[in-house]
Design a protein around this nucleic acid. Structure first.
Lengths: 201, 201
DNA sequence: TCCTTTACGAGACAGTCTGTCTCGTATAGG
DNA sequence: CCTATACGAGACAGACTGTCTCGTAAAGGA
């Protein structure tokens, strides 16, 4: 389980030795990354550039994150937060809420970062797994939970390939974001949910 | 309409002037790119490296392709070819054939190249459009045609959002390829087609 | 045959980024 | 006071990009 952020040296229990880290640096760096991401895209995020913009030493960044993709991924996670999936008692509402988080997430910094991050993931399995665990999995969980509740209520049939259904619910959002051939908006959210309901009922 | 490959100087009708290009170079470069792509991934494809491997001058590559992503995209297109969509008279068979091309395409060099290419597309709208036109659109066309034939036969209902349906059929393949969280195999092909049939009938 | 045009190989060049390292200095606990 | 770590500054080697300049090669046209 590789973390996005490097652990402190006193890497376990024991109170840390030596001079403590300055958390202002963490905040300044994350802010700089999000700013550059927003205005000039993933490619423009470089370790040198971020250090300059945050007015910090490059070594201080490398001390915290092993490389640019980990840094960016960590920044994204810090902006997303784990939205709890509401249980409304109705499958359509639950799915609309859960799928809506895709649409919203992909309207923020994730949108700018995703293509580059995906490319880096292809070259670093540890990064890929970390990103999947922190970005993909939490959002899948809320949809999976909604489907299971619906099945328990008798609102949805069983026997469907749940993993495939989860892919079907999420994939169009990533697909459109990465290829840019169509909009990612509330209309897509509604459309995807209606099709999922048609399948599962 | 930006082409992937740079046009020759005698860029129109008129027979070309001067020394003709050596097509051995085109072939050697494309072969080198596909080889590096296969063995070491998109990142390892560099203009310097390809020139070295193909034993040609860097300038000769830049004369033909404006930059690495265009070169790679052109190499991919050259390996894919436009598979004609068969008309079997049956929607399920037609879709299985059409969707099967996704699965096969994403088992070849496209699989290695896609993540990096997607990242470059995010920074170059012209490249993005060229890739969409040459990679995405042809495969969508055959699915669209199959759906329209089925509707004409009364095998499928109308009124559905065709573009969304096309995204639904293709997206899981790209999604799984880019995030690597699940396999892209014939089982996925069958599953996606069955769900599409459930929706459209 | 000569002239013009383009192709080719070789390499120079400036600019940028990465990741590591080494200073001198600062700040915590024991 | 000692030790451990953080910080800023910068050096460093290595790699890649994209453009440019040579000298040379190979076409067609006059």
């Amino acid at each position: 389980m590789t973390p996005l952020k490097s652990r402190l040296p006193g890497s376990g229990r024991r109170p840390p030795r030596g001079r403590p880290r300055n958390e202002d640096i963490d905040r300044a760096v994350v802010a700089a990354v999000l700013e550059v991401l927003r205005t000039r895209g993933y490619r423009a995020v470089t370790m040198v550039g971020i250090a300059r913009k945050a007015k910090r030493a490059r070594a201080s960044i490398y001390r915290r994150w092993p490389s640019k993709p980990y840094l960016v991924a960590d920044c994204l996670v810090s902006t997303m937060g784990a939205r709890p999936a509401p249980d409304t008692g109705d499958l359509r509402s639950d799915l609309l809420a859960a799928v809506g988080t895709f649409q919203r997430a992909l309207s923020g910094p994730l949108r700018q970062a995703l293509p580059g991050l995906v490319a880096d993931m292809a070259h670093d399995p540890k990064l890929a797994q970390a990103v999947r665990r922190q970005v993909l999995v939490p959002r899948r969980q809320s949809m999976r939970a909604a489907l299971e509740r619906a099945r328990a209520r008798g609102e949805a049939r069983g026997g469907a390939d749940i993993e495939l259904l989860l892919d079907l619910l999420a994939a169009p959002f990533y697909f459109r974001t990465l290829f840019g051939h169509a909009r990612v908006d509330r209309r897509l959210t509604r459309g995807v949910v209606e099709l999922a309901l048609k399948i599962v009922r």
